[in-house]
Design a protein around this nucleic acid. Structure first.
Length: 367
DNA sequence: GTGGCAATAT
DNA sequence: CATATTGCCA
């Protein structure tokens, strides 16, 4: 008896999970064009879960991270991340720094792992966090505690976005940064505005390249979706929706352009539709994509199994009757979240030159 | 003015 | 070569 009770919850969890997934799939199935990837992902997730339910236990492979420069080998057959930045939500947060400090090991090895191992071909790969303006590789030493999970989320960290539904009670969707009234201004590690270089030369030199972080891109995608696709979205609208300070119309425009180009050229190359037992990657992390409505699931990637997934109040898509015939159907615009860019703290990723933009999308034959 | 494309600069 | 910025045009 006890055994049954013991394992029941687990199975139930899976079942519920699957159900939830299927429900979501049904929802988005009406927008095959808008959310092709989501559809695919969910489908695979379902399959994967079913397999797990069946008894076969596969191993999850979560990956998500990489700074603006490195994406250490990510062995994976299937390419998935494509445009969906997978956020890793482990129990221990704080920053993930590359291990380099070998306490018990000699710290002499400095081998780069990248090599030509994986040409992930994620044009997105290079997009990471804001790359303010690495004047000269600031060498700020970030105190790196060994394991101690000292969550130091004091004010002014970074990552303004990301709404984590805290046990139902929404902390109001406003997560306004504490120290960032209006006008984050352009100063200290702030936006990338041109330095205090009064244009004396008569010619405003080019703006510093803006590095599109994952978060940034994520927001970009969200906005894109809400606007009904890349084709119907306009830079201005996107920018408005992103609500990222310091972001200009032109930047969005440019990014959109690139995005379109890439999406056009490489349609959707996912792996075979079948679910293959191989790597599972879903589990929770993925569904944070359309989280705009402030209700999604959180997963426990750390050691735990999957857990949550159900939409609290089923807040997700209000749309119910939308004939697939019409393509874009912008889901109502809800400005629930707010985010203040102000973060750009002293990230100081020394990633000016290193950026291993090894992406080489072997563009398909083209149509 | 806004949006799209192309040239140009990293 | 890929990616971002700037310029030009509908």
């Amino acid at each position: 008896m006890q055994f049954a009770e013991k394992m029941l919850p687990l199975k139930m969890g899976f079942r519920e999970y699957i159900e939830a997934l299927e429900e979501e799939r049904r929802k988005i199935q009406v927008f095959p064009k808008e959310l092709p990837l989501s559809l695919e992902l969910i489908t695979q997730a379902i399959e994967a879960c079913r397999q797990q339910l069946s008894g076969t236990v596969a191993e999850y492979n979560l990956n998500g991270q990489s700074e603006c420069s490195e994406q250490t080998s990510t062995d994976e057959g299937p390419v998935f991340e494509e445009f969906i930045p997978i956020k890793k939500r482990a129990s221990h947060d704080s920053v993930e720094v590359e291990d380099e400090d070998g306490d018990d090991e000699q710290h002499s090895h400095k081998q780069k792992k990248i090599t030509t191992d994986k040409k992930k071909s994620d044009w997105l790969r290079s997009v990471q966090l804001w790359n303010p303006n690495p004047p000269s590789s600031k060498e700020d030493v970030v105190p790196r505690k060994a394991n101690v999970v000292e969550v130091k989320r004091s004010g002014g960290a970074f990552q303004p976005f990301q709404r984590e539904e805290k046990s139902g009670v929404a902390t109001s969707t406003i997560t306004k940064a504490p120290s960032s009234p209006p006008v984050p201004a352009t100063s200290s590690t702030g936006p990338v505005r041109v330095e205090s270089k009064k244009d004396e030369k008569g010619q405003a030199q080019r703006k510093q390249r803006r590095c599109w972080s994952q978060e940034l891109h994520k927001r970009f995608l969200q906005a894109l979706q809400q606007l009904g696709g890349a084709d119907s979205a306009t830079p201005k609208q996107i920018r408005e929706l992103m609500k990222v300070d310091g972001l200009t119309n032109d930047e969005v425009k440019s990014h959109l352009q690139k995005f379109r180009l890439h999406t056009r050229r490489s349609p959707m190359i996912h792996n075979n539709g079948s679910s293959q037992a191989g790597p599972l990657f879903l589990v929770g992390n993925i569904f944070v994509q359309p989280s705009e409505y402030g209700a999604v699931a959180t997963s426990t990637a750390s050691g735990g199994e999957l857990t949550t997934v159900t939409g609290p109040t089923g807040i997700y898509a209000p749309v119910a009757a939308h004939p697939p015939a019409v393509t874009h159907t912008p889901i109502m615009k809800q400005h629930s979240h707010s985010q203040e860019g102000a973060n750009h703290s002293v990230h100081s990723n020394s990633s000016p030159a290193s950026s291993s933009s090894t992406h080489t999308f072997t563009t398909s034959p083209a149509p």
